[in-house]
Simulated assay, not measured.
Amino acid sequence: MAEPDRTTRRQFLATAGGAALGAVSLVHVGPARATPDTMKAAIRDIVNGAAVRPGKVKLDVPPLVENGNTVPLTVTVTSPMSDADHVVSIHIFNEKNPQPNVGNFYISPRAGRAQISTRIRLADTQTLTAIAKLSDGSFWSATADVVVTLAACTEEAT
């Protein structure tokens, strides 16, 4: 009786390592930080070409933060939050963090009010933009400038 073909551990690791190296070459390396242009592109992806109007959205964030590691923000949207007229989603964008889209929040009329509160990290002094999508398909926005004295997202762990 012939013995079955067996792959040794060393052969398996060599093959898997070669495959991993091949996969690494397929990875696209982008910029280390978002830019105003990448933020605009991320917003375009969310709104899918629709017009974004100022108003109905209030972005509450401190104008000056000592430490960018934990920046509180609240987004409130004026809406009756009824079945016929409500906020579908709230999106937060920034100019200089590693990723331009900080967060996406999906809500329904059952939420009772269109408000989210969170804490984010900010890599540097920058402009934040909050966009709300309403049930009628319209998009509304607000922006806020934040001065950061001690940047986050760029510090190395010690």
Rank of each mutant, 00 (worst) to 15 (best):
V87C: 01
N97D: 14
T76F: 03
F93A: 12
N94Y: 09
E95R: 03
D85C: 07
M81C: 05
F105L: 07
G103P: 01
G103C: 10
P100W: 11
H86G: 02
I92C: 15
L73Y: 01
P100S: 06
G103S: 14
H86D: 01
H86E: 05
D85R: 06
P100Y: 09
K96Y: 10
N97P: 08
N104F: 02
S82G: 02
V88L: 02
F105G: 05
V87D: 01
V102S: 13
T76G: 01
T74Q: 05
G103E: 07
F105K: 11
L73C: 00
Q99M: 09
S108T: 08
V102E: 09
P98S: 13
D83Y: 00
P80A: 06
S79D: 15
S89D: 09
V88P: 01
S108N: 14
H86Q: 10
V87P: 04
K96T: 14
N101L: 06
V75L: 09
V87E: 01
I90Y: 01
Y106Q: 11
K96A: 10
Q99W: 14
V87F: 03
N104P: 00
D83T: 04
V87R: 04
T78H: 11
V75S: 01
S79R: 12
S82N: 02
P100M: 09
I92R: 06
T78Q: 09
G103Y: 15
M81P: 07
Q99E: 07
I92N: 07
D85W: 07
S79V: 07
V75I: 07
N101H: 11
S108D: 09
P80D: 06
T78D: 06
N104T: 14
S79P: 10
I107S: 14
E95I: 11
V77I: 00
D85Y: 10
N97V: 07
A84L: 03
I107H: 14
N101Y: 08
V88C: 02
H91Q: 05
N97E: 14
P80M: 13
N104W: 06
N94L: 11
P98W: 05
G103Q: 13
A84D: 06
V75T: 01
V77H: 02
N101C: 14
N101K: 10
D85L: 05
D83F: 05
V75D: 00
V77C: 00
I107N: 03
H91V: 08
S82L: 08
I90Q: 01
I107Y: 11
I107T: 14
V102A: 08
P80W: 04
S82P: 03
D85K: 10
G103W: 02
V77P: 02
T78G: 05
K96W: 00
L73V: 02
N101V: 08
H91I: 06
P98M: 08
S89A: 12
V75M: 00
T76L: 05
Y106K: 15
P80T: 15
I92A: 12
S79L: 11
N101A: 11
F93M: 07
D83W: 10
S89Q: 04
Q99T: 09
A84F: 01
S79E: 05
F105E: 15
H86N: 12
Q99H: 08
S108Y: 05
S82T: 12
F93L: 13
S82V: 06
H91M: 12
P80C: 08
I92F: 02
I90F: 01
N97H: 05
